[in-house]
Design a protein around this nucleic acid. Structure first.
Length: 419
DNA sequence: TCTGGGGTCCTAGGACCC
DNA sequence: TCTGGGGTCCTAGGACCC
């Protein structure tokens, strides 16, 4: 059996731990640049605020119902996530951290009563971290996702916060489960399936394999088998190395000048190089991309990217920035209002396996980069940077509603006064 | 006026190999 | 009318996830 443990309204729950007065009140966490809703408390969901909805669309509700808003505080959420995952590892080392707020646990060797075990996971995580979680247990990952959905949403089960799906109740649950809610069925497939008369997960399991293969490739076939209780997706117990890494940000205002774009690209490229060093790897390619707002009228749309291949794979900030800026010059067009810039590194190889150039001497700024990383770790991210990353950074994120870094910064630690 | 930031996998088609 | 039989690698685009 597989368990999926998923944090409830994760970002909102993180904020509430350090601000308990928000318990029972509507709370929304916004995306970067305070653009749209990325997490909502149950009370905010009940007011009709949708996931991904832009703030300007529900500002009226905010004023009327005194909804508390937060900018995203990923430093806090990342740290709280680590605490939750560490807590889960106490139950079993066989765990796949699937996203910032959920993990699959392999329970195949667990002799315990699953009801009791799920309940204990839920209670322990809540007690030790303050985060409420839901637990879904089933024979496959896809069914565990479904079981988790039941644990969170189903009127009869959500009070318990866990749900066990097995051969005894599987078919009945599939018959009541809407096709579009299945993990792996997105909007496009849901629409096509509904047109084909498929309304529930059960209907989907009854489709001929030929049809599924033709319209949904092997991905659909796997999904079908998983729903029937046959494991096709294994747990990734070891994190596979990333194939590419991206750093990108939208601008809070329109950016037109090459100078400002260069600052942003230099900043993002530096961050990519840091990420490469952190996992001890190097990249062979650097891609830089810029685009205008996708909501612009067609005449004002522009989006372009370019991939530069490095002579030798590198994780040096100097190199990654240099090639990213070279690329930027080639795709920059004046007369556009840019909304976003980003850098993507790919062709990733372990740092020990970099193929050196036969004729060029190897650049060795490893010590410099190590020093840079140490300084930034000690004095704060971005304390030491390249001049090209700019000092004013007027293009930088808007985060006017940011909560303190309660768990990762000494000056932000909560003060308690007694008496 | 205002709309996020990351990732993965699969397929088809083209270029190329012997 | 008929035009071999295998392969690999790369890319773009589409679908999905959180």
């Amino acid at each position: 059996m597989v368990a999926l443990v998923d944090c409830n309204n994760f970002f909102v729950s993180c904020e509430r731990i350090f601000n308990p007065a928000l318990e029972g009140r509507p709370v929304v966490v916004l995306s970067n640049n305070d653009g749209n809703a990325v997490a909502r408390s149950q009370e905010a969901k009940d007011l009709g605020i949708k996931l991904g909805q832009p703030l300007f669309e529900f500002q009226e509700l905010v004023d009327k119902h005194h909804i508390t808003l937060f900018s995203s505080n990923y430093t806090l959420y990342g740290d709280m996530s680590n605490r939750v995952m560490e807590g889960l590892r106490q139950f079993t080392p066989h765990i796949e951290v699937y996203s910032i707020d959920e993990a699959f646990l392999d329970l195949s060797r667990m002799p315990y009563d699953l009801q009791e075990y799920s309940n204990r996971i839920k209670k322990t995580i809540r007690k030790n971290t303050g985060i409420p979680v839901s637990v879904g247990v089933a024979p496959t990952k896809t069914l565990a996702k479904l079981a988790n959905h039941m644990a969170k949403k189903h009127p009869r089960h959500k009070a318990k916060g866990f749900f066990i799906l097995d051969s005894g109740n599987r078919e009945k649950i599939l018959q009541e489960f809407p096709i579009g809610e299945i993990w792996g069925i997105g909007r496009a497939h849901a629409e096509r399936l509904q047109k084909h008369g498929v309304q529930t997960a059960y209907d989907f399991t009854q489709l001929p394999e030929r049809w599924v293969k033709e319209h949904m490739s092997v991905v659909g076939l796997r999904l079908q088998k998983e729903l029937l209780g046959q494991q096709c997706l294994s747990l990734a117990l070891i994190q596979p190395a990333k194939k590419g890494m991206c750093t990108s940000r939208s601008f809070p205002k329109k950016v037109t000048s090459l100078g400002e774009l260069q600052e942003a690209v230099s900043t993002h490229a530096s961050r990519c190089a840091e990420k490469l060093r952190k996992q001890n790897s190097c990249a062979n390619q650097v891609t830089v991309f810029i685009n205008t707002s996708r909501f612009n009228e067609p005449a004002k749309l522009y989006s372009n990217s370019i991939t530069v291949t490095l002579p030798t794979a590198s994780n040096s900030t100097l190199k990654v920035v240099q090639y990213a800026l070279q690329g930027l010059k080639l795709i920059y067009r004046a007369d556009y209002d840019y909304k976003k810039a980003g850098v993507f590194v790919s062709g990733i190889v372990p740092a020990q396996q970099v193929q050196q150039d036969l004729f060029e001497p190897a650049v060795n700024d490893g010590l410099l980069m190590k020093t840079l990383d140490k300084l930034n770790a000690r004095f704060g991210n971005g304390k030491v940077q390249l001049a090209s990353a700019g000092l004013k950074k007027e293009w930088q994120l808007k985060r006017s509603l940011l909560s303190p870094h309660y768990t990762t910064c000494l000056k932000d630690v909560i003060k308690v006064s007694i008496g």
